[in-house]
């Protein structure tokens, strides 16, 4: 079977760098992912096509990119699922982060927001000699949160970040939720006080939209929503943008979660 990958290219070393689209015709197997297709292009047609990839199994989170406009992991997206009749597939770098080259984006702002929520466990009391005793369900619940692979796909599709780059974004909030939920349900009794009030921000509906797209990528995050909608009760005032729906504020602090 054949398809065409229409890839957004960008190389800052060109004399007049500006993004452009390049098409690659490609033979593919029904089992091939978009990543397989891109690797085939890179290895046999054009070695200057630049992307990150590693595990090929949707674990490492390297190959987030936009496929036909929606962010996804390329290794997890079958060519046949997006181009059943051999249609052209648009492949572009993730949104809401600067592009370094072709499909490689600068994830530094992403990780900066993760750091802002100070995502590490700080138990209030000295740890016991053995393990913390905890009910299996609460651990299973937290493990569901911890299964986030930090690929950035949810951030790419986040419509709030498009209008307010200060918004922490869904990945950082999910990471925050791991410690919030820990406080509520586990024996760690975490002292978790993010330094920034901004960490309190969450737009329930926007987060929900983003998580729906993230679920397509990872198949896991949706559990967050099902498991504990309380976590997302806090809402947020985006800056006034014409046409932007207003959300009501119920909390200004993450402590209210």
């Amino acid at each position: 079977m054949h398809t065409t990958l229409r890839v957004r290219r960008y190389n800052p070393e060109q004399d007049h760098p500006s993004p452009y689209y390049q098409e690659y015709d490609l033979a593919f197997d029904p089992s091939d992912s978009v990543l397989d297709g891109l690797i085939k292009v890179r290895e046999t047609i054009d070695d200057s096509l630049t992307l990150r990839c590693s595990c090929r199994g949707a674990i490492c989170g390297s190959c987030g990119m936009r496929i036909n406009g929606h962010a996804a992991l390329a290794c997890k997206t079958k060519i046949i699922s997006v181009a059943p009749l051999g249609e052209t597939i648009d492949v572009e770098p993730m949104n809401n982060m600067p592009v370094i080259k072709d499909l490689v984006t600068d994830m530094a702002p992403f990780w900066e927001k993760i750091r802002q929520i100070q995502p590490w466990l700080r138990p209030a009391e000295p740890a016991p000699v053995a393990e913390y005793l905890a009910p299996p369900e609460s651990m299973n619940h937290l493990a569901g949160v911890m299964s986030c692979i930090m690929c950035g796909v949810c951030v790419s599709d986040c419509t709030v970040l498009e209008v307010d780059t200060n918004f922490l974004g869904p990945a950082a909030l999910a990471k925050a939720y791991r410690f919030v939920a820990d406080h509520a349900t586990s024996p760690h009794q975490t002292v978790w006080r993010p330094s920034m009030n901004q960490a309190a921000c969450g737009i329930a509906r926007a987060v929900w939209n983003v998580f729906r797209s993230a679920q397509k990528a990872s198949g896991r995050w949706i559990e967050l929503w099902h498991c504990d909608q309380r976590a997302w009760r806090a809402t947020y005032h985006p800056p006034a943008v014409p046409g932007m729906q207003k959300y009501s504020r119920t909390s200004s602090s993450i402590k209210a979660f």
């Binding site: 393990e131 009910p135 299973n140 493990a143 820990d182 760690h188």
Partner: peptide, 20 residues
């Protein structure tokens, strides 16, 4: 392994709440 658990690794538990 206990050190890892104290760092925050969410190991699966058995019915008694210990590491399974």
């Amino acid at each position: 392994i206990i050190t890892l658990e104290h760092m925050g690794v969410i190991f699966n538990r058995n019915d008694e709440g210990q590491l399974g």
